[in-house]
């Protein structure tokens, strides 16, 4: 089977692998993984940097919409599992099955890498933000100390001679 035919043959499994019915016009969870798989199959093995970029883009979009990294990972896992079951049923030739399985594994590893990198980037950002917060806290504490001193002085002055 040619690369194009293979991609077409797998694309008909979309409804079986993804929850397309539940989500109507919107992209169902895991669509980015399935699309990356089709892309990999259609050009006969996507290069790792190319796949990385594609998935990075789609995963970043999902995270930006508020999905957690865990959710992205769960969806990828579900797509993988369902795909394997669907491929086993849909393809008679073991050689064809192997082509899809190899591509699916490549996509799975890449998704995991992209999600991990996203988590690491988030951790780095959070770490930097925390440092900024701590700097703000130091400044606020200084201000608070000065205010306390002012308040104490004013209270003393009022107590000592300027009673209400």
């Amino acid at each position: 089977m040619s690369d194009r035919d293979m991609a077409a043959a797998v694309s008909v499994l979309r409804d079986e692998v993804l929850d397309t019915v539940e989500h109507g016009d919107r992209d169902p969870p895991g669509a980015e993984v399935f699309d990356a798989l089709l892309r990999t199959l259609s050009i006969g093995g996507e290069s790792v940097p190319g796949l990385d970029l594609t998935l990075h883009d789609s995963v970043a979009r999902r995270l930006a919409w508020g999905d957690s990294e865990e959710a992205v990972l769960q969806d990828a896992e579900l797509v993988f599992d369902r795909l394997l079951v669907a491929v086993d049923r849909a393809f008679r030739d073991p050689a064809d099955q192997m082509v899809v399985i190899e591509a699916a594994t490549q996509v799975a590893v890449t998704v995991a890498r992209v999600v991990s990198l996203a988590a690491v980037s988030r951790a780095t950002r959070d770490r930097a933000d925390r440092l900024r917060e701590e700097m703000s806290q130091r400044q606020l504490k200084e201000v608070l100390e000065k205010q306390k001193a002012n308040i104490a002085r004013l209270e003393d002055d009022l107590r000592s001679g300027f009673r209400d």
Partner: peptide, 8 residues
Amino acid sequence: GAATGLVL
């Protein structure tokens, strides 16, 4: 998947 879970 498990390794990524550990990273998370």
